[in-house]
Design a protein around this nucleic acid. Structure first.
Length: 417
RNA sequence: GGGAGAGUGUCCCGAGUGGCAAAGGGGGCGGACUGUAAAUCCGCUGGCUUACGCCUUCGUAGGUUCGAGUCCUACCUCUCCCA
């Protein structure tokens, strides 16, 4: 299927990671003949990466697995500017403190997918604040700015979109692509990095870096982008009731993460197994060939493998077991997500409305009321029809918890403390 | 600088021209059906309230009116035409 000669590009191609590559033959040849260094840049706009970052991160993973060197570049500097690509509106400006907090919190994620220097691997973690913060404006304009044509910059999608949609684009953001291009050149100088990867929306930014590398360093650099992932029914991937699907365990528990993958649409199973697990392809083909309800087995494998990558094998197995007991046995597993409330508060009695809001299953009392009217609320697996129902210590099960359910899939345990 | 038009339920798109908590989509959530899937059908989708009801919401700030998303004035942002 794949016409590539290098393991690296072969693996990526077979697993469906490749959307666009610049000069594929040359890059292929290079990757075949020697270890190459490649990087992906990450925003620090949130305290955790989310599902959308997973795909590019898996590319770094395979890069390392096929004998090359990955760099995870934290955008400590560029986040202060804000990438306008694919966004309608100017992002609010984050303070440096917040950015640094986010950066710290994101860091740990990479160790799950990459082996870093000092931990038996060769991966590098860099932060572009290191060189961007120190830039001198005039020097930068003269050294780097002169290589950019405004005429051409205006023609890039990230800019054109804003202009066409009559949304303001500040000069600050307009500079983002220059900084990202400069990152590429800087990483080339520092680490001999020759390839930048990213989502398909990054193509323009990456190509700018390639141009700049040629002009400033006479270097030959490459771009490789991954496809935008939508579900089989066309929806953007990674949205749930709660919002984004986070990777950090403190924002989304391994169980919830497992559930996210478990609920994959039929048509996505094979594709997701290739992209988000490291199972061998023949195993994936076997799983993807399952028909009808048997496909559920493949979804469980997907969920467990994807969760194991991110949260570890043990957490993944536990999530699978919790799901099995909850959905297949109809039991109340103590490993379900839980919220702790003071014992005294429970003994005093809490209205169902308040209880569900406290548990995070609803945003307002009214939302719970409507859910009750929709027959969607259960306490300890008993349907609630009365919104004046009080949850008390009487409701504690033999295990000492109260199980609140919204619909058939969302369960939270109340635990006294 | 002059003229014309636009900004709506803080997820998005979009009707609305004096009685509106504001049509209709999409998205999301729930229910039925299934396989924790998709498709389909049904319900819900501003806050508080047992309820009567109260509060907040249509770019911003004022004004007219019993009553304003709707009319008037100023301002902000954007689009188009003229210079």
């Amino acid at each position: 299927m794949s016409a590539y000669k290098s393991d690296f590009l072969n693996v990526l191609a077979e697993r469906g990671f490749i959307h666009q590559v610049s000069e594929p033959e040359t890059l292929d040849q290079l990757a075949k003949s020697q270890p190459i260094t490649a990087y992906i840049g990450y925003d620090c706009t949130a305290p955790s990466l989310h599902i959308g970052h997973l795909l590019p991160t898996m590319m770094l993973h395979w890069l390392q697995q096929t004998g090359h060197r990955p760099i995870a570049l934290m955008g400590g500097g560029t986040t202060r500017v804000g990438d306008p690509s694919g966004k309608d509106e100017t992002r609010r400006v984050l303070t440096e403190d917040v950015i640094n907090e986010n950066l710290k919190s994101i860091r740990q994620t990479f160790s799950k997918f990459l082996k870093f220097e000092g931990a038996g691997g060769n991966a590098i973690m860099a932060n572009n604040a290191e060189w961007l913060n120190a830039l001198n404006y005039i020097d930068f304009l003269r050294d780097v700015g002169r290589h950019f044509s405004v005429n051409r910059m205006l023609s890039f999608d990230s800019v054109k979109l804003r202009i066409d949609r009559q949304q303001e684009l500040s000069f600050l953001e307009f500079n983002y692509m220059i900084l990202q291009a400069y990152d590429f050149v800087e990483l080339h100088k520092r680490h001999g990095c020759v390839l930048q990867m990213g989502g398909s929306d990054q193509w323009g930014n990456i190509v700018n870096g390639i141009d700049l590398g040629r002009r400033m360093e006479n270097a030959q650099l490459f771009a490789l982008t991954a496809p935008l992932i939508t579900t089989a029914s066309g929806a953007k991937m990674g949205k749930t009731a709660a919002g984004a699907v986070w990777l950090n365990a403190d924002l989304m528990s391994p169980y919830q993460y497992w559930q996210f993958w478990r609920n994959t649409e039929d048509g996505d199973v094979t594709r997701f197994l290739k992209l988000f697990t490291v199972l061998p392809l023949d195993e994936i083909v076997r799983l993807g060939a399952l028909q009808g309800s048997e496909l559920n087995e493949a979804k469980k494998v997907l969920a467990t493998e994807a969760t194991a990558l991110m949260h570890g094998r043990e957490a993944a197995d536990q999530a699978a077991e919790t799901a099995r007991r909850t959905f297949e046995q109809g039991e109340t597993s103590l490993a379900l997500p839980s919220v702790s409330l003071p014992r005294a508060e429970i003994e005093a009695g809490i209205g169902v409305l308040a209880a569900f809001v406290k548990a995070g299953l609803a945003k307002s009392n009214g939302e719970v009321r409507r859910a009750i009217a929709n027959n969607a609320i259960q306490v300890n697996d008993v349907r609630i029809a009365d919104d004046k129902r009080i949850v008390t210590a009487q409701d504690l099960t033999a295990d000492g918890v109260i199980k609140l359910s919204l619909g058939k899939k969302q369960h939270i345990l109340i635990k006294p403390e």
